[in-house]
Amino acid sequence: MDLIRDAIRETFLLLLQGDSEIWSITLRTLIICGCSTIVSFIVGASAGFCLAVLPFRGRGVLVTFANTGMGMPPVIAGLLVAVLLWRSGPLGGLNLIYTPVAMIISQCVIAIPLVAAITAGSFMSLPESLFLQIRSLGAGRKDTLFLLAYEARLGLMVAMMAGFGAVISEVGAAMMVGGNLAGDTRVLTTATVLLVSKGEFGRALAYGIVLLAMVFIVALVLTSVQNLARKRV
């Protein structure tokens, strides 16, 4: 208990005293995870919409792939991206390994199937007659997309929350392709792992509390928006 009490006290001290390290790691975590979430959502939601709405051969197989991807271990995603971006790998010339961009790519590999599968499920749960009715009104593809997205907005918000949850909590891939470089690719999860390995449990717990608080605040905002939308349904 002392350890936890000390950690909470240390967290407040670090934050209130303006500890530059914790603030910079927190900010970096937010930027990297925010970028990953946005990219994952744009790509994943678009893919999910196509999987749900467009008739094409092999759609069922792709839906199965997306569903399988929901359970992809972050370490595997990290390994794949590391192999691609490694100096001698196919994309080694881009010099992205051990950079925040590499971390964003690996986090997107983890989150995109998740977002795509949840989005596809949300659109598929809309009645077929809604799709037909919108088309009968004369809507083109863009109008159809926006009208259906509005109808599936609760599911889309769940997809975004799931994507954010996946990228902010993963550590294996971030460590593997980011390298946990201080001041560059060190984020809250990788920093926590490092501190624990050094036996600095107090500061590690402080980082953990900040991470939890961040997830809580984001979840709170999205849940509030979701509840607001649900009340209007």
Binding site: P127, S129, L130, L132, I134, S136, G140, L147, E151, R232
Partner: peptide, 19 residues
């Protein structure tokens, strides 16, 4: 097809209204 689809209106068995 889409141009002529705009000449008709359809009302379904279970009325489909947007939210």
């Amino acid at each position: 097809r889409r141009e002529f689809r705009r000449l008709s209106s359809i009302s379904f068995q279970d009325p489909v209204l947007l939210d």
